[in-house]
Amino acid sequence: MSIQHFRVALIPFFAAFCLPVFAHPETLVKVKDAEDQLGARVGYIELDLNSGKILESFRPEERFPMMSTFKVLLCGAVLSRVDAGQEQLGRRIHYSQNDLVEYSPVTEKHLTDGMTVRELCSAAITMSDNTAANLLLTTIGGPKELTAFLHNMGDHVTRLDRWEPELNEAIPNDERDTTMPAAMATTLRKLLTGELLTLASRQQLIDWMEADKVAGPLLRSALPAGWFIADKSGAGERGSRGIIAALGPDGKPSRIVVIYTTGSQATMDERNRQIAEIGASLIKHW
């Protein structure tokens, strides 16, 4: 067993022997301040990774656009098919120029040779490549099948209805392509620590998230040296922004954090800054 596999296998073990965790309302004060600064709703939840206990939450059962955070769930569904012998990570998928959609920095470079399922998941999570996500959605049967996968996990809230990039439209009061912070946090925890996926697939999923290259201005910008984070960000229309993450000190994750916002007129930089400040408060009061 590799060191990384050992780390993920012992996530519940280490967490069980940690000192009790206590909620700190100071972080919620910052979440509410972010709402004021952005002029928009902000949803927040913080779960203990081992027990699933909610440590703090704000608007945990209000719907927010998922945006690209759905790509972690998508690759979880792909990995479940791999575990069941219905898919192979090494299978190569070929596609054409007509398949390319807006923001496809990886797939646009491989029109000639195609990409493997493993490479597509890596591109979808680490670079948020939209064509990679659409190609992977095709392998599982489309958005409705991802929703069905989530329902089978016990998540009857999260739903995907459309493809990239239309799913980022974020129309107010439109339930399409949305989740709730509580539902997303619980589902992410199941994917990373539950028995739904094999140990190898859980490790692969967290490795992809740990290698995320496009979430630097968010929670990662607030992390002290030595902290662990595996995350996936999302951005959408109407001032929408979000991030889902597993993080913790001492090089291992111990909490799940989900943050979503929508309806702001603020710039992307300002949305990023507010999420980073929430992260800084979380870490300060850990």
Rank of each mutant, 00 (worst) to 15 (best):
S281G: 08
L197T: 05
A123R: 01
M153A: 13
A280C: 11
D99I: 09
K53C: 08
I54R: 09
V31D: 01
S240W: 01
P20L: 03
V78A: 06
Q4G: 08
F228V: 07
A23S: 08
R202C: 09
K213Q: 14
A222E: 13
L223I: 12
A225Y: 13
L49S: 07
L191V: 09
L73Q: 05
F58R: 09
V82C: 11
T186I: 15
R176D: 06
I171H: 15
L167A: 08
E87T: 08
I259K: 00
I243R: 00
G85D: 10
L218N: 03
L136Y: 00
R162C: 06
E62V: 08
A124C: 08
I125W: 00
T186M: 15
L89V: 06
R91V: 05
P20Q: 15
Q265F: 13
G154K: 07
D207K: 12
Q88H: 15
L49D: 02
T69M: 03
T261Q: 07
W227Y: 07
F149P: 01
A230W: 03
I275A: 02
D99Y: 07
H94C: 08
A170R: 08
E169V: 11
L160N: 07
M180W: 11
K32I: 11
E195A: 06
L197A: 04
T178I: 04
M268A: 09
N98Q: 15
D33F: 03
S57L: 09
Q265R: 13
H94G: 10
L219V: 10
R255W: 01
E119Q: 15
G90V: 12
L218V: 04
Q203M: 14
G216T: 10
A200T: 12
I259Q: 01
R63Y: 07
V157E: 12
T267G: 13
V29Y: 04
R162L: 05
I229W: 02
G242I: 00
Q203V: 13
V78I: 09
G251N: 15
A266K: 13
V78F: 04
C18P: 05
L74Q: 02
K190V: 12
T69R: 00
L199E: 15
C75E: 01
L160V: 14
H156R: 13
M67S: 10
I125A: 04
M268D: 06
M127H: 08
A84I: 11
L188T: 09
T147F: 02
D269K: 12
F17E: 04
E46D: 07
G239N: 05
R271Y: 03
W286V: 02
P65W: 01
K144D: 15
P224W: 03
V257A: 06
K213H: 12
T178F: 02
K190Q: 12
V78M: 09
L196N: 15
E46C: 07
H5Y: 12
F149C: 07
A40G: 14
N173C: 14
I140S: 05
R118P: 04
Q97H: 14
D161A: 06
A182Q: 11
R59W: 04
E87S: 06
D36P: 05
V257P: 00
L218S: 03
I278E: 00
T186H: 14
G52L: 05
T179L: 01
I93L: 12
P20H: 10
A200N: 15
T193P: 01
R81M: 08
I125P: 00
K284Q: 13
S240G: 12
N173Y: 12
M153T: 12
C121R: 00
R59I: 02
S221T: 13
S68R: 00
L150R: 00
R41H: 15
P253D: 07
A225N: 15
P224G: 07
S51C: 05
L89A: 07
T138I: 11
H156I: 15
P217C: 07
G142R: 04
M184D: 00
M180S: 15
N168I: 05
L120D: 00
D48L: 04
R238V: 09
E164F: 00
K232Q: 00
A266Y: 08
G90P: 08
L191R: 00
L120K: 00
N173H: 12
V21G: 08
K32F: 08
P60H: 13
I243K: 00
F70P: 00
E169P: 05
L38N: 06
E61W: 12
T139A: 15
A170P: 08
I140Y: 09
G141V: 04
H5A: 08
G234F: 01
P20S: 08
I283K: 05
I54V: 15
T147V: 11
R202K: 15
H151R: 14
A123D: 02
R271G: 08
N173V: 10
G251F: 08
P172V: 12
I140A: 07
Q204G: 05
L135I: 14
F6D: 05
T178W: 01
D129S: 01
G279Q: 02
E35D: 05
K252I: 12
T267F: 07
A170V: 14
L146R: 00
L223R: 05
P249I: 06
T27F: 04
P25D: 09
A183M: 10
R241W: 02
I275H: 01
D231G: 04
N130K: 00
F149R: 07
Q97T: 13
D269E: 15
D161V: 06
A280R: 13
I229A: 05
G248D: 02
P165T: 10
A15Q: 08
E61M: 14
A266T: 12
E35F: 02
E166A: 11
E169K: 13
L282Q: 06
P249N: 08
E166H: 11
D269S: 13
G43I: 00
L100E: 04
K252A: 13
A246R: 02
V42S: 03
G251C: 09
A34Y: 06
V29Q: 15
D83P: 02
G52W: 05
E35Y: 02
M184P: 00
F70V: 10
E210G: 10
M268E: 06
R176P: 04
Q97S: 14
P181Q: 00
V72R: 00
K190D: 15
A170I: 09
E119A: 10
S57W: 11
R241M: 04
H110R: 10
L120R: 00
A133Q: 00
C75W: 00
D250K: 13
L38G: 07
V257R: 00
K252E: 14
N272E: 06
M153V: 11
T178Q: 03
P20N: 13
K71S: 00
A222T: 14
E56V: 08
D207M: 11
M153W: 15
G236N: 06
V29W: 15
I45V: 15
I140R: 02
G248L: 00
T179V: 02
L111G: 06
K109W: 09
M127V: 12
T131Q: 03
R176I: 06
C121G: 05
G85W: 06
N134C: 04
A15S: 15
A200R: 13
H285E: 10
R118F: 13
A266W: 06
S240L: 02
D48I: 04
F70L: 05
G114D: 04
L223P: 02
D33H: 15
S57T: 11
V214L: 07
G142W: 01
M209Q: 02
V21H: 05
L218F: 04
L111P: 07
L282W: 02
T178L: 02
Q204L: 14
E26G: 12
Q203C: 02
K213A: 15
F228H: 06
M67E: 05
L205Y: 02
A77Y: 12
M66S: 03
D174N: 06
A200D: 15
P224M: 04
G194M: 08
G216Q: 13
G263L: 06
D161I: 04
P65S: 05
L136N: 01
T27R: 03
M209F: 03
I45R: 03
A266S: 13
S240M: 03
G234D: 00
G236F: 02
E61N: 13
E62I: 06
T69Q: 01
T178N: 03
P224R: 06
G154F: 04
K252V: 14
L28E: 06
G226V: 04
D161G: 03
E270L: 10
D48G: 06
V29M: 11
P181E: 00
D33S: 10
D212A: 04
V8I: 14
G242Y: 00
I244K: 00
Q265P: 11
M115L: 13
N130E: 01
Q265M: 12
V42Q: 01
I140P: 01
L47D: 01
V78L: 07
I275F: 12
R271V: 10
